[in-house]
Amino acid sequence: MRILVLTQGVPDLVEGLEVASDGVSLDQDWLKYVLNDFDDHALEEALQLKADGGVEVVAVSLETDGSRDILFTCLAKGADRAVLVPGDWFGTDNHQKAKALVSLVKAIAPDLVLTGVQAPADADGQVGVLLAGNLRWAHVTTVKEVRLAEGKATVVKELEGGTGARYQVALPAVLGIQAARVPPRYVPVSKVRQAMKTGQLEEMEAPPEGDTVLQARKLYPPPSGERAAMLEGDADTVAGELVRILREKGIGRLAG
């Protein structure tokens, strides 16, 4: 059983995001790319399946700043292979990515593709289900648990309100992972560095395909018309002010 984990480097939201002078894209000067949090869960779920037995994990990443680090981290965490898809993927949309990945996925020939349920900038849809659509493969997304048995996957899909729905999924399939069954593992830097010394990154070409389907007109921060009234001062001042407000509104024990 082979599992392909599709990972993406995404802009780190800890940094303030600024709009570039073209008005439709992000200013890249300060952008730092990190592994998409949900992809980290997808990798973890794949590694859990590997621990269950009989699974080979192939991590794939579309090249961005930091994608080599991401792939070596995947290797250090326990992926068996790591594949870099070279190119400048900044500015390509998910439709283009998904189309480009079709031939690559067929070449790697996994039984299952796991990827994060979403990424921070899925303007035109989430890449996992788009990929499944292009491959005409089965898919389930918002998945929080995957089990494999007898050539099929049984998954728990998370519905609104957190209820789980169980599905049996014929393989090959693409699963969008909402959360792994355990929190993603921390991998010590020395293991990552070890992987950098001894591990191999394979490179497989998959140039973007097709035109951007949605034309960007304007990228902008949400209007801040109805923002919160901001309280200022040190912790004690703010606390005092809040207590006054809560009393006024009759909240909890401060009522009456």
Binding site: N94, D122, G128, V129, L130, V140, T141, T142, L159
Partner: peptide, 20 residues
């Protein structure tokens, strides 16, 4: 949870753009 299954797959199959 259902829309996330339908939107991207239909978009890929039909070639119709999707606004998420």
């Amino acid at each position: 949870a259902a829309g996330l299954e339908l939107g991207p797959d239909l978009s890929a199959r039909l070639g119709s753009p999707l606004i998420a």
